[in-house]
Design a protein around this nucleic acid. Structure first.
Length: 603
RNA sequence: GGUUCCGUAGCUCAGUUGGAUAGAGCAACAGCCUUCUAAGCUGUGGGUCCCAGGUUCGAAUCCUGGCGGAAUCACCA
């Protein structure tokens, strides 16, 4: 549990409580605390927090101004230095002392803004969920960054967080790349071709589709079939199905090839994950969960929550829930996508007894998760209501959706490499690499390149579709990752110099000083951080964290521009500013860490 | 066609439980490096918040109906 201090009780809540009492005293009315809207005062007005008094004018039977004035006068709090009234807005200014005390206490806190994980409040976050037949692309990047960041944010907000991956390693699509490799592979391996395993397997998947299309086209012409029938009747498709049957029958040779090729893919994925900076506490494989799903479905059939059709297929009737009927097992007893998700959910619940199970999956699967929840409810699973689908929008290119057929898929590895190259070029052009070793340079370019990419993607509200223009999207100026990294490096530079001048250890002792506008803005922004962590967690929104840390960096740069930390003649003020800078750097570090972005100390 | 999501400056995006004059960045233009890192700071121009109603003291935000875009409605995953 966190250490209790004065700042665990938000000053907003304290003021709201006082307002509540004032309303009772002045107008004899009890007002629920939710009615009292206290918000940060807008920049162009004087004050720190603002009470909107419009809701109380009726009971006060006075004008908004008079009501605000009366409440302002009634309030007596040490922390409030003054107040002013503009129309129906009552603006409170807190005393400099309050802010200075806050800074002092926050500086003492080891993990300001974050909480210790509560072991009893577990949340499982599933993200990434790749198929083993294709390499990762830009869409997966959004998924991975979102999932990783949401998990970090939940953890910072006090949840016991488990990051899991669910690998889709079985099914007809996996058999397609296997079959192509068996037919045309000539025993190629990642080693023999010097290709990444996932890329190699992906090539065979493409090969299969190309050959299948040829066969289907021929059939279409010779037998007058429509597209779908032509595809289904093509010899290659039949062979792929046979391979799937062999796989389900655990045919040793098939299993061996399957294991080998999946092994190549995992090695390739690990490589991509590592560079992207994401990882997992546990990896589930669909090949391990689909049988459990099947069992649960059969069990549900016995309990008559589900029903069987004449051909032997098993269905859930969700018409009473406003949805359709949903197939859960085919007539031949094999599983569908939904089946394995039922098994996975159960397994995950058995493993962690989580209060929440979050699925980071694109919005194209909204319907699937609707159905999954309702099926689990029908099966009377206790965890049915703890399922949360964190649905995010597509990443689009200037020419529209990514299409593998048109070769517009942005490969994850290629993109990261390009980011690195751009970062290198830009940094060297600015002549900022003096005194760096080769190794340090590499790390810096990597941090900046990936920082730019991650920030660009995470700053957008997850539920919205977003546009990624490879030519223009990546900028290192303005509202970008490198801007925030730069601000951090700048502060670190001050801190290093303070160290050299031997004033770093001497803390500001809390003597009375006044706060200028920039200092106050900065300190107020810092004050908001713990709440931002909680809000971002509640909304599962890294975008809120990203926008916050940008705001903070901007605030610092304005302060930096107008006031000097080290050249300030008054030693008390200098030390205070040093402490303010130090906390800013720490919050930037923490906040960007929650986005999976590293901030360098020099750049 | 049904369902869900989105629509804010030329472009990319913010906008808190409904609150004051709707904000950033990019792009354009004009300034600021002898002073802690100019990947920075300051200023100017740029808006029918898709449209029309409704609720409210107050609507970009909530409700209804349109328009536009996306996703989905598989014995694919």
């Amino acid at each position: 549990m966190p250490v209790k201090n004065n700042f665990m009780i938000r000053i907003e809540d304290k003021i709201a409580e006082q307002v509540q009492q004032a309303l009772k005293k002045l107008f004899g009315q009890d007002v629920e605390s939710e009615m009292i809207a206290l918000q940060p005062t807008r920049k162009d007005f004087e004050g720190d927090f603002t009470l909107v008094v419009f809701p109380f004018v009726k009971m006060a039977r006075r004008s908004p101004e008079q009501t605000a004035q009366a409440i302002g006068e009634e309030l007596a709090m040490d922390e409030i230095e003054s107040f002013n009234v503009i129309k129906g807005f009552l603006n409170f200014s807190l005393s400099p002392n309050y802010w200075l005390n806050f800074l002092g206490e926050a500086a003492e806190e080891k993990r300001f803004g974050t909480r210790e994980p509560d072991e009893k409040d577990t949340v499982v976050v599933e993200y990434s969920s790749p198929n083993t037949n294709k390499p990762l692309h830009l869409g997966h990047i959004r998924n991975n960054l979102l999932g990783y960041s949401v998990a970090k944010i939940l953890e910072a907000a006090g949840k016991n967080t488990v990051k899991v991956n669910l690998v889709n390693d079985r099914g007809i699509h996996i058999c397609k790349s296997m079959l192509a490799w068996m037919k045309w592979g000539n025993g190629e391996t990642p080693e023999s071709t010097a290709k990444k395993g996932d890329k190699l397997v992906g090539e065979y998947y493409v090969k299969f589709e190309t050959e299948l299309r040829k066969e289907a086209q021929a059939l279409k012409e010779s037998h007058q079939l429509d597209d779908e029938n032509a595809r289904n009747n093509a010899p290659l498709m039949q062979e792929a199905r046979e391979l799937l049957r062999n796989w389900e029958a655990r045919d040793p040779e098939t299993i061996e090839i399957w294991k080998m090729m999946n092994g190549w893919v995992y090695k390739g994925f690990d490589n991509t994950y590592q560079r992207l900076g994401v990882h997992f506490d546990k990896i589930y494989y669909e090949s391990d969960t689909y049988l459990l799903g099947r069992e649960i479905v059969l069990e549900g059939l016995e309990k008559t929550a589900l029903y069987k059709k004449e051909d032997g297929s098993v269905w859930a009737d969700l018409t009473d829930e406003g949805l359709d009927e949903k197939l859960l097992l085919r007539a031949d007893g094999t599983s569908v996508y939904m089946t394995q998700d039922i098994g996975t959910a159960q397994l995950r619940y058995d493993d962690y007894q989580a209060n929440q199970m979050i699925y980071v999956v694109g919005n194209e699967q909204n319907y699937h998760f609707d159905v999954l929840k309702k099926v689990l409810k029908k099966l009377e699973k206790p965890y049915a209501k703890s399922l949360m689908h964190l649905s995010y929008g597509m990443v689009e290119l200037p020419q529209g959706k990514m299409k593998s057929r048109e070769g517009t898929v942005v490969d994850a590895d290629d993109l990261m490499e390009e980011m690195f190259a751009t970062a290198k070029e830009t940094t060297e052009a600015l002549g900022k690499t003096e005194g760096f070793s080769e190794e340090e340079k590499e790390k810096l370019f990597e941090n900046i390149g990936l920082g730019a990419l991650k920030y660009f993607i995470l700053k957008v509200d997850p539920k919205k579709n977003m546009l990624f223009n490879p030519e223009e999207s990546i900028d290192f100026n303005g509202n970008t990752g490198p801007f925030i990294q730069y601000t951090h490096a700048r502060i670190c530079s001050i801190l290093r110099k303070a160290e050299e001048r031997d004033i770093a250890g001497k803390k500001y002792d809390g003597g009375k000083i006044s706060l200028n506008e920039k200092e106050k803005n900065l300190i107020r922004t810092l004050y908001a951080f713990p709440q931002v962590v909680q809000d971002a967690a509640a909304d599962m929104s890294p975008a809120q964290m990203a926008n916050y840390v940008y705001e903070l960096a901007k605030e610092f740069n304005q302060f930096y521009h107008e006031h000097s930390v080290l050249n300030e003649p008054d030693p008390d003020v200098s030390r205070f500013r040093l402490q303010l800078s130090e906390l800013t750097a720490r919050v930037i570090n923490t906040a960007t860490g929650l986005l999976g972005i590293e901030v360098p100390e020099r750049m």
